[in-house]
């Protein structure tokens, strides 16, 4: 209809119309487009380009070195180690955060008097930043006066100096991250639960399904796209993690927590090895891109099963 009024009011060649439309739309699109060009697309190309060049600490005097740095990154044991650490970190954070979020969402899903208070508490950690939760947990994890060791000691479990132990540092950092991400997981899963049509539960009840079978055959399938979303976003978060590492362990001890982004930061901003850090960043980009595409692809297949 608007096509008709437009055509009826202003007549012109298709080409003139296209120009007129472009001129009209430009002021609306250019602010975003310019910012994307400068701060998203250019850096992406520039990162790839820097990966092919060795540079001085200020990114000048670029010397073409071909794929040498990419080759270094992909074959170096350090980077493989960082990749492995990031993968482990993803595993340690995503599974517990999703499971706890699912548990808290199921617990607070029913409409009961006062349930809003509990939902608010469960989702509250979404307000905490990585700096706040790191400072909070630094205290809890303190080996000599921290609460965690106190409680473990009471329970007869051997205590640890969490953040300085090569074995425990990564799980300890993961624990702080899980706590920080619980709020996000709970919020999204609660919304997912509310999206499952009530009729499905009703018909399950008519079929005489028990609580457990209802959960297995209605709740879980209905929730699968949501759980998938929470997990994939969690994996992406994990691969992009930096703050908690920088505050709690600085990548140590013995590189046990040297996740990819921390490694990029250290190469670029502490060792001034811009080219190598850029090559690492490009590899990280490919990983995150594959994860995102996986999410879109799998989500499309799963979401429309109804």
């Amino acid at each position: 209809m608007s096509e008709e009024t437009m055509a009826g009011r202003r007549v012109g060649s298709p080409r003139a119309r296209a120009i007129r439309q472009t001129v009209a739309a430009a002021p609306f699109l250019l602010p975003s487009l310019v910012l994307f060009a400068v701060f998203v697309f250019y850096p992406l190309v520039r990162s790839i380009w820097l990966g092919f060049h060795a540079t001085d600490p200020f990114g000048r005097n670029e010397v073409w070195v071909g794929t040498a740095q990419y080759h270094d990154v992909l074959t170096s044991s350090d980077f493989r180690h960082s990749l492995l650490v990031s993968g482990q970190f993803a595993l340690y954070t995503v599974i517990p955060a999703t499971a706890i979020g699912l548990y808290l969402a199921l617990l607070s899903h029913r409409r009961l008097p006062g349930i809003v208070i509990f939902r608010t508490i469960f989702s509250s950690t979404v307000a905490t930043s990585v700096a706040v939760s790191s400072v909070v947990w630094l205290l809890m994890l303190n080996p000599s006066v921290g609460v965690l060791n106190y409680v473990l000691g009471k329970g007869g479990v051997p205590t640890e100096s969490w953040l300085t132990s090569p074995t425990w540092a990564l799980p300890a950092v993961a624990m702080t991250t899980v706590w920080m991400n619980i709020g996000f997981a709970t919020i999204v899963i609660l919304a997912g639960l509310q999206n499952i049509p009530e009729e499905l539960y009703e018909s399950a009840r008519v079929d005489g399904a028990g609580r457990w079978s209802e959960f297995l055959h209605v709740t879980l399938p209905g929730l699968s796209p949501t759980l998938l979303f929470v997990s994939v976003v969690g994996v992406i978060f994990a691969f992009e993690s930096f703050g908690q590492i920088q505050i709690l362990t600085q990548g140590g001890p013995l590189d046990a927590t040297n996740v990819i982004v921390y490694s990029i930061y250290r190469e670029a901003f502490l060792h001034y090895n811009i080219g190598l850090a850029s090559a690492q960043a490009v590899v990280l980009f490919v990983i995150v891109l594959l994860l995102t595409l996986l999410q879109f692809g799998v989500a499309r297949r799963w979401v429309f099963y109804q």
Binding site: L44, S47, I236, E240, I264, S278, A281, V282, L284, F285
Partner: peptide, 8 residues
């Protein structure tokens, strides 16, 4: 992801 563009 923002993290990969920090250098440029």
């Amino acid at each position: 992801p923002w993290e990969i563009s920090i250098i440029p």
